[in-house]
Design a protein around this nucleic acid. Structure first.
Lengths: 219, 219
DNA sequence: ATGGTCATCCCCAGAACTGGCGATGGTGGC
DNA sequence: GCCACCATCGCCAGTTCTGGGGATGACCAT
Protein backbone atom coordinates (compact mmCIF):
# COMPACT_ATOMS: atom_id res chain seq x y z
CA UNK A 1 0.00 0.00 0.00
CA UNK A 2 1.25 3.49 -0.78
CA UNK A 3 1.94 6.02 1.95
CA UNK A 4 -0.89 8.52 2.51
CA UNK A 5 0.51 12.04 2.54
CA UNK A 6 -1.10 15.37 3.44
CA UNK A 7 0.37 18.71 2.50
CA UNK A 8 0.06 21.98 4.39
CA UNK A 9 1.52 24.92 2.48
CA UNK A 10 0.08 28.34 1.85
CA UNK A 11 1.84 29.09 -1.44
CA UNK A 12 -0.46 27.59 -4.08
CA UNK A 13 2.34 27.02 -6.55
CA UNK A 14 4.64 25.26 -4.12
CA UNK A 15 1.68 23.25 -2.86
CA UNK A 16 0.72 22.20 -6.35
CA UNK A 17 4.19 21.02 -7.19
CA UNK A 18 4.43 19.04 -3.96
CA UNK A 19 1.10 17.38 -4.70
CA UNK A 20 2.28 16.59 -8.18
CA UNK A 21 5.53 15.13 -6.88
CA UNK A 22 3.74 12.88 -4.40
CA UNK A 23 1.01 11.73 -6.74
CA UNK A 24 3.35 10.98 -9.58
CA UNK A 25 5.68 8.89 -7.45
CA UNK A 26 4.89 5.23 -7.00
CA UNK A 27 4.44 4.28 -3.37
CA UNK A 28 2.99 7.65 -2.40
CA UNK A 29 -0.40 9.25 -2.67
CA UNK A 30 -1.56 12.67 -1.65
CA UNK A 31 -4.76 12.35 0.35
CA UNK A 32 -5.28 16.01 1.15
CA UNK A 33 -3.85 19.48 0.68
CA UNK A 34 -4.35 22.57 2.81
CA UNK A 35 -3.55 26.23 2.28
CA UNK A 36 -3.84 27.16 5.97
CA UNK A 37 -3.32 25.68 9.40
CA UNK A 38 -6.98 26.26 10.20
CA UNK A 39 -8.05 24.16 7.25
CA UNK A 40 -5.46 21.51 8.07
CA UNK A 41 -6.65 21.25 11.66
CA UNK A 42 -10.22 20.56 10.65
CA UNK A 43 -9.56 18.35 7.61
CA UNK A 44 -6.47 16.26 8.34
CA UNK A 45 -8.09 14.25 11.14
CA UNK A 46 -10.61 13.00 8.57
CA UNK A 47 -8.03 12.36 5.89
CA UNK A 48 -6.31 9.48 7.67
CA UNK A 49 -2.95 10.58 6.43
CA UNK A 50 0.13 8.78 7.58
CA UNK A 51 2.60 11.55 6.89
CA UNK A 52 2.06 15.32 6.88
CA UNK A 53 4.39 17.72 5.13
CA UNK A 54 4.03 20.96 7.04
CA UNK A 55 5.27 24.38 6.07
CA UNK A 56 6.26 26.48 9.08
CA UNK A 57 5.59 29.92 7.72
CA UNK A 58 1.82 29.96 7.40
CA UNK A 59 -0.47 32.97 7.73
CA UNK A 60 -2.51 32.93 10.94
CA UNK A 61 -1.63 29.84 12.92
CA UNK A 62 1.90 28.80 12.01
CA UNK A 63 3.07 25.32 11.18
CA UNK A 64 4.65 24.62 14.55
CA UNK A 65 1.48 25.51 16.40
CA UNK A 66 -0.51 23.48 13.88
CA UNK A 67 1.69 20.46 14.57
CA UNK A 68 1.27 20.94 18.29
CA UNK A 69 -2.49 20.80 17.99
CA UNK A 70 -2.58 18.03 15.46
CA UNK A 71 -0.28 15.61 17.23
CA UNK A 72 -2.43 14.84 20.27
CA UNK A 73 -5.34 13.89 18.00
CA UNK A 74 -3.20 11.89 15.63
CA UNK A 75 -0.31 10.38 17.54
CA UNK A 76 0.41 7.86 14.80
CA UNK A 77 0.68 10.45 12.08
CA UNK A 78 4.21 11.58 11.37
CA UNK A 79 4.80 15.24 10.73
CA UNK A 80 7.73 16.50 8.69
CA UNK A 81 8.39 20.21 8.89
CA UNK A 82 9.32 21.69 5.58
CA UNK A 83 10.88 25.07 5.84
CA UNK A 84 13.59 27.54 5.00
CA UNK A 85 14.42 28.21 8.66
CA UNK A 86 17.64 26.72 9.88
CA UNK A 87 17.91 28.44 13.21
CA UNK A 88 17.99 26.40 16.36
CA UNK A 89 14.97 28.09 17.81
CA UNK A 90 12.64 26.95 15.06
CA UNK A 91 14.06 23.46 14.96
CA UNK A 92 13.62 22.84 18.66
CA UNK A 93 10.18 24.33 18.72
CA UNK A 94 9.08 22.17 15.83
CA UNK A 95 10.43 18.99 17.35
CA UNK A 96 8.99 19.87 20.72
CA UNK A 97 5.64 20.41 19.04
CA UNK A 98 5.66 16.85 17.83
CA UNK A 99 7.32 16.93 14.43
CA UNK A 100 9.48 13.91 13.72
CA UNK A 101 11.30 15.22 10.70
CA UNK A 102 12.74 18.55 9.72
CA UNK A 103 13.71 19.16 6.11
CA UNK A 104 14.73 22.27 4.28
CA UNK A 105 12.59 23.40 1.38
CA UNK A 106 15.49 23.30 -0.99
CA UNK A 107 15.72 19.54 -0.51
CA UNK A 108 15.71 17.74 -3.88
CA UNK A 109 12.51 15.79 -4.69
CA UNK A 110 14.17 12.40 -4.44
CA UNK A 111 15.42 13.12 -0.94
CA UNK A 112 12.05 14.41 0.10
CA UNK A 113 10.44 11.16 -0.98
CA UNK A 114 13.16 9.27 0.87
CA UNK A 115 12.40 11.34 3.96
CA UNK A 116 8.73 10.45 3.76
CA UNK A 117 9.61 6.78 3.50
CA UNK A 118 12.02 7.10 6.38
CA UNK A 119 9.62 8.81 8.74
CA UNK A 120 7.01 6.25 7.84
CA UNK A 121 9.47 3.47 8.68
CA UNK A 122 10.11 4.88 12.15
CA UNK A 123 13.04 7.16 11.46
CA UNK A 124 13.54 10.88 11.84
CA UNK A 125 14.71 12.38 8.60
CA UNK A 126 16.50 15.66 8.74
CA UNK A 127 19.11 17.57 6.80
CA UNK A 128 22.63 16.92 7.97
CA UNK A 129 23.21 20.40 9.33
CA UNK A 130 19.95 20.25 11.20
CA UNK A 131 21.06 16.97 12.75
CA UNK A 132 24.30 18.55 13.84
CA UNK A 133 22.50 21.37 15.57
CA UNK A 134 20.34 18.96 17.45
CA UNK A 135 23.29 16.87 18.48
CA UNK A 136 25.17 19.96 19.57
CA UNK A 137 22.41 20.81 21.95
CA UNK A 138 23.15 17.60 23.79
CA UNK A 139 26.72 18.53 24.25
CA UNK A 140 27.72 20.22 27.42
CA UNK A 141 29.68 23.28 26.62
CA UNK A 142 31.12 25.04 23.65
CA UNK A 143 34.90 24.65 23.67
CA UNK A 144 35.21 28.22 22.50
CA UNK A 145 34.99 30.23 25.69
CA UNK A 146 37.95 32.58 25.57
CA UNK A 147 39.01 32.21 29.18
CA UNK A 148 38.52 28.47 29.27
CA UNK A 149 41.10 28.32 26.54
CA UNK A 150 43.78 28.58 29.17
CA UNK A 151 42.26 25.81 31.24
CA UNK A 152 44.03 22.49 31.15
CA UNK A 153 42.02 19.49 29.91
CA UNK A 154 41.58 18.23 33.40
CA UNK A 155 40.46 21.59 34.70
CA UNK A 156 37.97 21.88 31.87
CA UNK A 157 36.55 18.53 32.86
CA UNK A 158 36.13 19.69 36.42
CA UNK A 159 34.44 22.87 35.27
CA UNK A 160 31.98 20.90 33.19
CA UNK A 161 31.01 18.84 36.19
CA UNK A 162 30.87 21.92 38.38
CA UNK A 163 28.44 23.42 35.90
CA UNK A 164 26.16 20.45 36.33
CA UNK A 165 25.97 21.05 40.03
CA UNK A 166 28.07 18.18 41.24
CA UNK A 167 29.64 18.38 44.66
CA UNK A 168 33.41 18.21 45.05
CA UNK A 169 33.20 14.67 46.30
CA UNK A 170 30.98 13.66 43.40
CA UNK A 171 33.39 15.18 40.93
CA UNK A 172 36.19 13.33 42.65
CA UNK A 173 34.30 10.08 42.25
CA UNK A 174 33.38 10.76 38.64
CA UNK A 175 36.96 11.57 37.71
CA UNK A 176 38.43 8.86 39.88
CA UNK A 177 40.68 11.18 41.85
CA UNK A 178 40.59 12.38 45.44
CA UNK A 179 38.70 15.29 46.89
CA UNK A 180 42.00 17.09 47.38
CA UNK A 181 42.81 16.96 43.69
CA UNK A 182 39.43 18.33 42.74
CA UNK A 183 39.97 21.06 45.27
CA UNK A 184 43.27 22.00 43.70
CA UNK A 185 41.87 21.98 40.18
CA UNK A 186 39.06 24.23 41.26
CA UNK A 187 41.40 26.71 42.90
CA UNK A 188 43.35 26.88 39.67
CA UNK A 189 40.15 27.36 37.67
CA UNK A 190 39.12 30.23 39.91
CA UNK A 191 42.51 31.86 39.51
CA UNK A 192 42.42 31.57 35.76
CA UNK A 193 38.85 32.77 35.39
CA UNK A 194 39.26 35.47 38.01
CA UNK A 195 36.27 34.39 40.01
CA UNK A 196 35.73 33.63 43.65
CA UNK A 197 32.95 31.06 43.65
CA UNK A 198 31.73 28.14 41.66
CA UNK A 199 28.61 29.94 40.56
CA UNK A 200 30.60 32.78 39.07
CA UNK A 201 32.75 30.28 37.27
CA UNK A 202 29.73 28.45 35.94
CA UNK A 203 28.03 31.64 34.87
CA UNK A 204 31.14 32.62 32.98
CA UNK A 205 31.46 29.15 31.56
CA UNK A 206 27.88 28.97 30.38
CA UNK A 207 28.25 32.01 28.25
CA UNK A 208 28.75 35.29 29.98
CA UNK A 209 25.27 35.28 31.42
CA UNK A 210 25.58 38.81 32.70
CA UNK A 211 22.46 40.00 30.99
CA UNK A 212 19.42 38.16 32.12
CA UNK A 213 16.77 37.28 29.66
CA UNK A 214 13.27 36.17 30.43
CA UNK A 215 13.61 32.76 32.03
CA UNK A 216 10.09 31.77 31.18
CA UNK A 217 10.55 32.49 27.50
CA UNK A 218 13.58 30.24 27.56
CA UNK A 219 11.36 27.35 26.62
CA UNK B 1 42.68 15.60 0.16
CA UNK B 2 41.29 12.41 1.66
CA UNK B 3 39.69 12.33 5.07
CA UNK B 4 42.02 11.18 7.87
CA UNK B 5 40.28 8.51 9.93
CA UNK B 6 41.27 6.86 13.22
CA UNK B 7 39.73 3.64 14.45
CA UNK B 8 39.22 2.59 18.06
CA UNK B 9 37.96 -0.98 18.35
CA UNK B 10 39.16 -3.75 20.61
CA UNK B 11 38.21 -6.69 18.41
CA UNK B 12 41.23 -7.20 16.15
CA UNK B 13 39.19 -8.74 13.35
CA UNK B 14 36.57 -6.03 13.26
CA UNK B 15 39.29 -3.44 13.50
CA UNK B 16 41.21 -4.94 10.62
CA UNK B 17 38.18 -5.00 8.38
CA UNK B 18 37.38 -1.39 9.20
CA UNK B 19 40.94 -0.37 8.40
CA UNK B 20 40.74 -2.26 5.18
CA UNK B 21 37.45 -0.64 4.25
CA UNK B 22 38.79 2.85 4.91
CA UNK B 23 42.11 2.36 3.18
CA UNK B 24 40.65 0.74 0.14
CA UNK B 25 38.09 3.50 -0.40
CA UNK B 26 39.15 6.53 -2.39
CA UNK B 27 38.77 9.74 -0.42
CA UNK B 28 39.57 8.10 2.90
CA UNK B 29 42.73 7.08 4.67
CA UNK B 30 43.23 5.41 8.00
CA UNK B 31 45.87 7.31 9.95
CA UNK B 32 45.79 5.22 13.12
CA UNK B 33 44.14 2.27 14.77
CA UNK B 34 43.78 1.51 18.46
CA UNK B 35 42.76 -1.56 20.40
CA UNK B 36 42.04 0.30 23.62
CA UNK B 37 40.85 3.67 24.86
CA UNK B 38 44.11 4.14 26.71
CA UNK B 39 46.07 3.75 23.53
CA UNK B 40 43.66 5.97 21.65
CA UNK B 41 43.94 8.72 24.24
CA UNK B 42 47.70 8.86 23.98
CA UNK B 43 48.03 8.35 20.23
CA UNK B 44 45.09 10.07 18.55
CA UNK B 45 46.16 13.58 19.55
CA UNK B 46 49.36 13.00 17.58
CA UNK B 47 47.63 11.37 14.65
CA UNK B 48 45.83 14.51 13.47
CA UNK B 49 42.79 12.54 12.51
CA UNK B 50 39.73 14.35 11.28
CA UNK B 51 37.23 11.63 12.08
CA UNK B 52 37.36 8.94 14.76
CA UNK B 53 35.31 5.77 14.60
CA UNK B 54 34.86 4.74 18.20
CA UNK B 55 33.55 1.49 19.56
CA UNK B 56 31.63 1.92 22.81
CA UNK B 57 32.26 -1.43 24.38
CA UNK B 58 35.97 -1.31 25.12
CA UNK B 59 37.77 -3.04 27.97
CA UNK B 60 38.97 -0.62 30.65
CA UNK B 61 37.96 2.89 29.70
CA UNK B 62 34.89 2.67 27.49
CA UNK B 63 34.31 4.51 24.25
CA UNK B 64 32.03 7.16 25.70
CA UNK B 65 34.55 8.09 28.36
CA UNK B 66 37.28 8.03 25.75
CA UNK B 67 35.30 10.47 23.63
CA UNK B 68 34.73 12.70 26.63
CA UNK B 69 38.44 12.96 27.26
CA UNK B 70 39.43 13.26 23.66
CA UNK B 71 37.01 15.98 22.69
CA UNK B 72 38.40 18.81 24.83
CA UNK B 73 41.85 18.25 23.36
CA UNK B 74 40.61 17.88 19.82
CA UNK B 75 37.53 20.01 19.39
CA UNK B 76 37.80 19.91 15.62
CA UNK B 77 37.95 16.15 15.41
CA UNK B 78 34.59 14.50 14.78
CA UNK B 79 33.79 11.35 16.68
CA UNK B 80 31.37 8.75 15.38
CA UNK B 81 30.30 6.13 17.89
CA UNK B 82 30.05 2.70 16.37
CA UNK B 83 28.15 0.27 18.47
CA UNK B 84 25.48 -2.35 18.91
CA UNK B 85 23.73 -0.42 21.66
CA UNK B 86 20.48 1.20 20.69
CA UNK B 87 19.24 2.23 24.10
CA UNK B 88 18.62 5.86 24.81
CA UNK B 89 20.99 5.95 27.74
CA UNK B 90 24.01 5.06 25.66
CA UNK B 91 23.05 7.37 22.83
CA UNK B 92 22.50 10.29 25.11
CA UNK B 93 25.72 9.72 27.00
CA UNK B 94 27.72 9.40 23.83
CA UNK B 95 26.37 12.61 22.37
CA UNK B 96 26.83 14.44 25.65
CA UNK B 97 30.41 13.20 25.70
CA UNK B 98 31.07 14.93 22.42
CA UNK B 99 30.29 12.39 19.74
CA UNK B 100 28.70 13.89 16.65
CA UNK B 101 27.56 10.71 14.99
CA UNK B 102 26.09 7.46 16.21
CA UNK B 103 25.98 4.49 13.90
CA UNK B 104 25.13 0.88 14.50
CA UNK B 105 27.78 -1.73 13.83
CA UNK B 106 25.57 -3.53 11.39
CA UNK B 107 25.63 -0.49 9.10
CA UNK B 108 26.64 -1.49 5.56
CA UNK B 109 30.13 -0.31 4.48
CA UNK B 110 28.82 2.15 1.91
CA UNK B 111 26.66 3.89 4.51
CA UNK B 112 29.52 3.99 6.94
CA UNK B 113 31.68 5.77 4.40
CA UNK B 114 28.81 8.14 3.71
CA UNK B 115 28.55 8.82 7.43
CA UNK B 116 32.24 9.70 7.62
CA UNK B 117 31.83 12.08 4.73
CA UNK B 118 28.76 13.57 6.31
CA UNK B 119 30.32 14.18 9.71
CA UNK B 120 33.32 15.69 8.00
CA UNK B 121 31.05 18.02 6.09
CA UNK B 122 29.42 19.30 9.26
CA UNK B 123 26.55 16.90 9.61
CA UNK B 124 25.59 14.40 12.26
CA UNK B 125 25.11 10.99 10.73
CA UNK B 126 23.02 8.50 12.61
CA UNK B 127 20.83 5.53 11.90
CA UNK B 128 17.23 6.46 11.35
CA UNK B 129 15.97 4.79 14.50
CA UNK B 130 18.64 6.50 16.54
CA UNK B 131 17.53 9.81 15.10
CA UNK B 132 13.97 9.09 16.11
CA UNK B 133 15.01 8.38 19.67
CA UNK B 134 16.88 11.63 19.89
CA UNK B 135 13.98 13.55 18.49
CA UNK B 136 11.62 11.83 20.90
CA UNK B 137 13.70 13.01 23.79
CA UNK B 138 13.00 16.55 22.72
CA UNK B 139 9.32 15.90 22.78
CA UNK B 140 9.37 14.85 26.39
CA UNK B 141 11.69 17.67 27.16
CA UNK B 142 9.57 20.24 25.49
CA UNK B 143 6.29 20.76 27.24
CA UNK B 144 7.98 22.06 30.35
CA UNK B 145 9.17 24.92 32.46
CA UNK B 146 6.41 24.88 34.96
CA UNK B 147 9.26 24.94 37.45
CA UNK B 148 10.50 28.48 37.02
CA UNK B 149 6.94 29.54 36.41
CA UNK B 150 6.04 28.59 39.93
CA UNK B 151 8.69 30.85 41.37
CA UNK B 152 7.35 33.98 42.99
CA UNK B 153 8.64 37.33 41.67
CA UNK B 154 10.86 37.77 44.66
CA UNK B 155 12.28 34.27 44.33
CA UNK B 156 12.99 34.85 40.67
CA UNK B 157 14.91 37.98 41.62
CA UNK B 158 17.00 36.04 44.07
CA UNK B 159 17.69 33.36 41.49
CA UNK B 160 18.88 35.99 39.04
CA UNK B 161 21.37 37.32 41.53
CA UNK B 162 22.35 33.83 42.52
CA UNK B 163 23.13 33.09 38.88
CA UNK B 164 25.48 36.02 38.76
CA UNK B 165 27.52 34.59 41.57
CA UNK B 166 26.52 36.93 44.38
CA UNK B 167 26.92 35.81 47.95
CA UNK B 168 23.88 35.56 50.18
CA UNK B 169 24.92 38.71 52.00
CA UNK B 170 25.38 40.57 48.72
CA UNK B 171 21.97 39.50 47.54
CA UNK B 172 20.54 40.67 50.83
CA UNK B 173 22.14 44.03 50.37
CA UNK B 174 21.04 44.35 46.76
CA UNK B 175 17.45 43.50 47.62
CA UNK B 176 17.46 45.49 50.84
CA UNK B 177 16.41 42.58 53.00
CA UNK B 178 18.24 40.55 55.60
CA UNK B 179 20.41 37.51 55.10
CA UNK B 180 17.70 35.39 56.72
CA UNK B 181 15.16 36.37 54.11
CA UNK B 182 17.49 35.56 51.29
CA UNK B 183 18.12 32.25 52.95
CA UNK B 184 14.42 31.48 53.09
CA UNK B 185 13.85 32.48 49.49
CA UNK B 186 16.66 30.24 48.40
CA UNK B 187 15.33 27.29 50.32
CA UNK B 188 12.00 27.75 48.60
CA UNK B 189 13.67 28.00 45.21
CA UNK B 190 15.53 24.77 45.83
CA UNK B 191 12.34 23.03 46.83
CA UNK B 192 10.50 24.19 43.74
CA UNK B 193 13.28 23.39 41.33
CA UNK B 194 14.14 20.11 43.02
CA UNK B 195 17.79 20.95 43.42
CA UNK B 196 20.16 20.90 46.33
CA UNK B 197 22.69 23.57 45.54
CA UNK B 198 22.94 26.97 44.00
CA UNK B 199 24.89 25.71 41.05
CA UNK B 200 22.25 23.16 40.15
CA UNK B 201 19.64 25.86 40.38
CA UNK B 202 21.66 28.17 38.19
CA UNK B 203 22.37 25.46 35.65
CA UNK B 204 18.68 24.76 35.44
CA UNK B 205 17.90 28.43 35.29
CA UNK B 206 20.30 29.03 32.44
CA UNK B 207 18.78 26.12 30.58
CA UNK B 208 21.92 24.08 30.47
CA UNK B 209 21.27 21.74 33.28
CA UNK B 210 20.04 18.25 33.24
CA UNK B 211 20.20 17.61 36.91
CA UNK B 212 21.34 14.18 37.88
CA UNK B 213 19.32 14.09 41.02
CA UNK B 214 15.87 14.67 39.70
CA UNK B 215 15.62 13.59 36.08
CA UNK B 216 11.86 13.83 36.11
CA UNK B 217 11.77 17.46 36.99
CA UNK B 218 14.90 18.11 35.03
CA UNK B 219 13.01 19.32 31.98
C1' DA C 1 69.49 19.90 34.09
C1' DT C 2 66.52 23.29 34.87
C1' DG C 3 62.36 25.60 34.68
C1' DG C 4 57.48 25.40 33.40
C1' DT C 5 53.13 23.26 33.33
C1' DC C 6 50.22 19.69 34.66
C1' DA C 7 48.06 16.28 37.62
C1' DT C 8 47.97 14.23 41.74
C1' DC C 9 47.77 14.32 46.89
C1' DC C 10 47.76 16.37 51.96
C1' DC C 11 46.47 19.70 56.21
C1' DC C 12 44.04 23.48 58.19
C1' DA C 13 40.90 27.33 59.34
C1' DG C 14 37.41 30.40 58.34
C1' DA C 15 33.68 31.60 55.44
C1' DA C 16 29.63 30.31 53.10
C1' DC C 17 25.97 27.38 52.23
C1' DT C 18 22.16 23.91 53.35
C1' DG C 19 18.19 22.42 55.76
C1' DG C 20 15.72 21.58 59.78
C1' DC C 21 12.78 24.11 63.19
C1' DG C 22 10.24 28.13 63.91
C1' DA C 23 7.71 33.25 63.74
C1' DT C 24 5.00 37.62 62.08
C1' DG C 25 2.21 40.22 58.76
C1' DG C 26 -0.13 41.01 54.36
C1' DT C 27 -2.99 39.67 50.44
C1' DG C 28 -6.48 37.31 48.00
C1' DG C 29 -9.90 33.61 47.31
C1' DC C 30 -13.90 30.99 48.78
C1' DG D 1 -13.59 33.67 58.94
C1' DC D 2 -10.27 30.48 57.19
C1' DC D 3 -6.75 28.88 54.19
C1' DA D 4 -3.07 29.37 50.97
C1' DC D 5 0.55 31.89 49.47
C1' DC D 6 3.97 35.33 49.82
C1' DA D 7 7.56 38.14 51.99
C1' DT D 8 9.90 39.11 55.84
C1' DC D 9 12.82 37.68 59.91
C1' DG D 10 15.21 34.37 63.46
C1' DC D 11 18.18 30.21 65.51
C1' DC D 12 21.06 26.25 65.10
C1' DA D 13 23.68 22.21 63.45
C1' DG D 14 25.93 20.21 60.02
C1' DT D 15 28.00 20.20 55.48
C1' DT D 16 30.49 22.19 51.80
C1' DC D 17 33.47 25.71 49.80
C1' DT D 18 37.25 28.73 49.68
C1' DG D 19 41.97 29.91 50.06
C1' DG D 20 46.24 29.61 52.38
C1' DG D 21 50.27 26.63 53.06
C1' DG D 22 52.66 22.67 51.40
C1' DA D 23 54.34 18.08 48.52
C1' DT D 24 55.52 14.51 44.63
C1' DG D 25 56.17 12.78 40.05
C1' DA D 26 55.63 13.21 34.98
C1' DC D 27 56.37 15.48 30.90
C1' DC D 28 58.30 18.86 27.70
C1' DA D 29 61.17 22.33 26.01
C1' DT D 30 65.41 24.97 26.30
Amino acid sequence: MSIAVSIVEDDAQVRASLVKLIDSSPGFRCVSQHGSAENALSEIPKAKSEVVLMDINLPGINGVECARRLKPQLPATQIIMLTVYQNTEHIFNALAAGATGYMLKQTPPAELLAAIKEVHAGGSPMSSHIARKIVSSFQQVAPTTPASQSLSPREAEVLDLLAKGFLYKEIAEAMKVTYATVHTHIRHIYEKLHVRSRTEAVAKHLGQGRSRRDPIAAN
